[in-house]
Computed example of a mutant assay.
Amino acid sequence: MAHDLRIAGIQRPAEVSFTFEGQALMAPAGEALAVALLASGIRRLGEGMDPARPRVALCLMGVCQQCLVRVGGRLVQACITPVQEGIAVTRA
């Protein structure tokens, strides 16, 4: 967990646990999944057509679709999907 990437001194909701590719992580409930993954040091969300250009959280506002991941087997945009207790996230 790399919470040192979050700004200190801001009150946030209680943290919840979730997994990414089987790795246990924690993040404030309701935080955008892409932000939670970035704060945990996870940058590569999937592979594009060219392996040298992985899919990452790019626009962080739901426009580009580069942050697609699977939550419970369903494709979602990580930048507009809130973190919830117990969700299992995998690369798309």
Results as ranks from 00 to 15, higher is better:
Arg53Pro: 00
Leu60His: 13
Ala52Gln: 09
Ser40Glu: 13
Cys64Ile: 05
Leu60Glu: 11
Leu33Glu: 08
Arg55Lys: 07
Gln66Trp: 01
Cys64Gln: 08
Ala29Phe: 02
Ala57Val: 06
Leu25Ala: 04
Met49Ser: 14
Arg12Ala: 12
Ile80Trp: 01
Pro13Glu: 14
Pro82Trp: 02
Arg44Gly: 00
Ala24Lys: 13
Val83Ala: 12
Pro51Ala: 08
Val76Lys: 12
Met61Phe: 11
Val56Trp: 00
Leu68Gln: 15
Gly46Phe: 00
Pro54Arg: 01
Ile87Met: 15
Ala34Val: 08
Val76Met: 03
Leu58Val: 04
Gly46Cys: 06
Val89His: 04
Val63Glu: 15
Met61Tyr: 12
Arg55Asn: 13
Ile80Pro: 01
Phe20Lys: 03
Glu31Gln: 15
Arg55Cys: 06
Ala52Thr: 06
Cys79His: 07
Thr90Phe: 01
Cys59Val: 04
Leu45Tyr: 07
Gly48Asp: 06
Leu60Ile: 08
Val16Glu: 03
Ala36Asn: 05
Ala2Arg: 15
Arg43Lys: 12
Gln23Ala: 11
Thr19Arg: 14
Pro13Tyr: 00
Ser17Pro: 00
Ile87Asn: 02
Ala29Tyr: 03
Met49Pro: 03
Ile80His: 05
Ala92His: 13
Arg44Ala: 03
Gly30Gln: 09
Gly62Lys: 10
Arg70Tyr: 01
Leu45Pro: 00
Arg91Ser: 07
Ile80Gly: 04
Leu75Tyr: 10
Val69Gly: 01
